[in-house]
Amino acid sequence: MHRDHELHGRRRSRNFGLLGVLLAFIVIIFGVTVVKIRTGGFSEGFDHVARPSALPAEEVSQ
């Protein structure tokens, strides 16, 4: 099949769409990770880690 077969043209938009979805997925995973680490939800209650939910509001904000 020739490189510029019209099939490639038709698939191009689909491939770019998929690329967009994958990039969005990466951004979401990154965002969720940042938020989870900042809020301490992951590590809360585990070994030697403070529990933000058990601290007074002033200490959490510090």
Binding site: I28, G31, V32, V35, K36, T39
Partner: peptide, 11 residues
């Protein structure tokens, strides 16, 4: 729930 986590959950 954190707004970003809320929006992502809806997604």
């Amino acid at each position: 729930i954190h707004p970003f986590l809320g929006a992502t959950s809806i997604l």
